[in-house]
Design a protein around this nucleic acid. Sequence first.
DNA 1: AACAGTCGTAACACTAATGGTTACGACGGA
DNA 2: TCCGTCGTAACCATTAGTGTTACGACTGTT
Lengths: 144, 144
Amino acid sequence: MSANSKLTIAAHALAWISLYQRQGHEVATSEQIAGSANTNPVVIRRLLGELRRAGLVESRRGVGAGWSLARDLESMTLLDVYEAVEPGPLFAMHRATPDQGCVVGYGIQPAMQGIYEGIEETLRRELARVTLEDVLRDVLAAPR
Amino acid sequence: MSANSKLTIAAHALAWISLYQRQGHEVATSEQIAGSANTNPVVIRRLLGELRRAGLVESRRGVGAGWSLARDLESMTLLDVYEAVEPGPLFAMHRATPDQGCVVGYGIQPAMQGIYEGIEETLRRELARVTLEDVLRDVLAAPR
DNA sequence: AACAGTCGTAACACTAATGGTTACGACGGA
DNA sequence: TCCGTCGTAACCATTAGTGTTACGACTGTT
């Protein structure tokens, strides 16, 4: 499947910002976060831009600019982040419309759509059970 | 996320083969299935080849060749199909190793891996709850 | 023995998504 | 006015999925 690390990087960025703020700083820069995540600052800015549209973070411009949390980590779940950065459904239908004259071709899409909806709902429930505060706690619990 | 229709096409093919066999035919050809799914026979052969490796279907060669089910649809779940056609994990880690000198960079991967494992286990449980017989029933239940 | 139909698979092209990089204008505090 | 950072466009590289052509391998039939 997709080698999609957006959810991981987003969680990384949120945990980093929160920890940095707890150390007394007001905002974190995309360059600092990119250094920790070992990627490019533009990648971080793009990703945090999506999180800002979802109301999870805020950004300040000008000198002394950077990113800060818009809400408490406790109130943010992986589902919030997932919906902010992952647009489409988990499973896709046929690329081309199947043969509507065939019984299977006619009925397969409604059948699979119903099944997929149930599965994705379960996935969302699982993602909603994990807060970013949980993530940060797990991060700090890693053995040295 | 990934526009990945392999699971859908695989379910389509299995339902089609089963229905065709219930009508008295021994084997279905990749060309027939491709006609119903509106795709190329080679795509179907590749996909069914993966299902054969997983023990879900069998193929016969020579004249009068084609594909047949290796097991009853009742004993096949979407998880069997999913594992046969989807290789990797649902969520990926960072492309490049994060900064191991940073607390977050050091702890993020074990933390996310633990979380992701739980979520994927839930996904597998959901997929295992749906048999291909369920899928075929839903297909035939589509209103005309 | 030859033929014909179908699988098995390699090779290639096309598309879309993701991620990395450079560049540069916009913004706002000093 | 200057400087640091965001916002965003543009482009490239890589990868995965899909569609297509081609052709050898296999096997029942004639």
